[in-house]
């Protein structure tokens, strides 16, 4: 008797949608291929899950890649404890709904020493609570491959990033020593202690991400959609003012306005934009006329144009 997929029990069976256009289909196929290749070639992969829109697309593709099986690796969230509250709620709901193994890691030492983005400055804080925390989590899990949602069009230093990005045992990225990557034949051979970061979304652009979210109806953290929210203005950024840890400085006041976020991270470091785009169609329409690239909302990139490369060399994802 032929084996049939209907006989198997599938949690959250997918719904039928109109087919993707060939452009998105090609990107999707490529991402699925990468997911399967890494899952097959590495002993202990993990997916870095940042709860943002790129991570949401990445997760959706992972579910597609392994269907009708479960996603065969855990999701790792590095929780700085300074994420937006809605992000954490969303993360927990998604992990439950999609039957995922979720690993949450916080840099205990940093947390105990009271390192915060307010007291220690964004660079030091990021180094401890994100970069160091990520290394700790990867070491603790003994992961030999980590999926990430980085795209080559995000930032100049990413344009040369491989799909399999090779890392030394201490998680260093050496831009001069990356392996050549030809066709879609990936070299997954590594020594003990070495690892790769794998980037299934390498060839996607920001517009592709949004169009795919729309076409596939992928749920996102509501902060991506405009609503009237409290905020304070600081250093030219609009910071969400709902967490009691945000202390107002002299001259600052909480305002209310229709805002949304183009990128999500730690709330003190992530600026909102003024917007009335309260659903996906409106966000995309707004994106069409926007000419400010998405990372601009992040304090981390703004010092000088080589800064991301420096952070990558040091192990920042």
């Amino acid at each position: 008797m032929p084996l049939s997929v209907q006989e198997t029990e599938i949690k959250n069976p997918p719904v039928s949608r109109p087919p993707l256009d060939p452009h998105l289909k090609a990107l999707e196929n490529e991402a699925i291929h990468i997911f399967r290749e890494v899952a097959a070639e590495f002993e202990n992969p993990v997916m870095l899950y940042s709860i943002g829109k790129d991570s949401s697309v990445l997760l959706h593709l992972a579910r597609k890649a392994f269907f009708p099986g479960r996603v065969p690796f855990p999701l790792l969230h590095v929780d700085t404890t300074w994420k937006f509250k809605e992000m954490i709620e969303f993360r927990n709901r998604i992990a439950d709904e999609y039957d995922l193994d979720l690993v949450v890691h916080t840099n205990k030492r940093g947390a105990e020493e009271g390192i915060t983005p307010f007291t220690h400055g964004s660079a030091f804080y990021t180094d401890v609570m994100k970069t160091e925390a990520l290394k700790q989590a990867l070491d603790a899990g003994g992961y030999d491959a980590a999926f990430g949602g980085a795209r080559r069009d995000e930032e100049a230093s990413r344009a040369k990033e491989r799909i399999y990005s090779f890392r030394t045992p201490d998680h260093k990225w050496d831009p001069r020593n990356q392996r050549p990557e030809l066709w879609n034949v990936y070299n997954g051979m590594i020594r003990k202690g070495e690892s790769v970061r794998a980037f299934p979304l390498s060839n996607w652009t920001e517009v592709d991400i949004w169009r795919y979210i729309q076409a596939e109806d992928i749920p996102l953290v509501p902060l991506y959609y405009a609503a009237t929210r409290p905020y304070v203005e600081r250093d030219g950024m609009m910071i969400l003012a709902e967490d009691p840890r945000l202390e107002l400085q002299p001259g600052e006041e909480v305002k209310h306005g229709s805002i949304r976020f183009r990128t999500l991270g730690c709330f003190p470091l992530t600026g909102a934009i003024r917007s009335t785009a309260s659903n996906l169609d409106e966000v995309i329409a707004e994106l069409e006329i926007a000419t400010v690239s998405e990372r601009q909302g992040r304090a981390i990139d703004r010092d000088q144009s080589g800064s991301m490369e420096k952070k990558k060399r040091e192990g920042y994802f």
Binding site: D21, P22, E206, Q214, A285, L287
Partner: peptide, 29 residues
Amino acid sequence: MSATAASTSATILPFAESAARVTRDARPL
């Protein structure tokens, strides 16, 4: 990068009302 932005830039490209929703009938070249 925005698909509509592309359409507004060059004289040879017609302006599209909503490029993000334009279905591209080809794979990326």
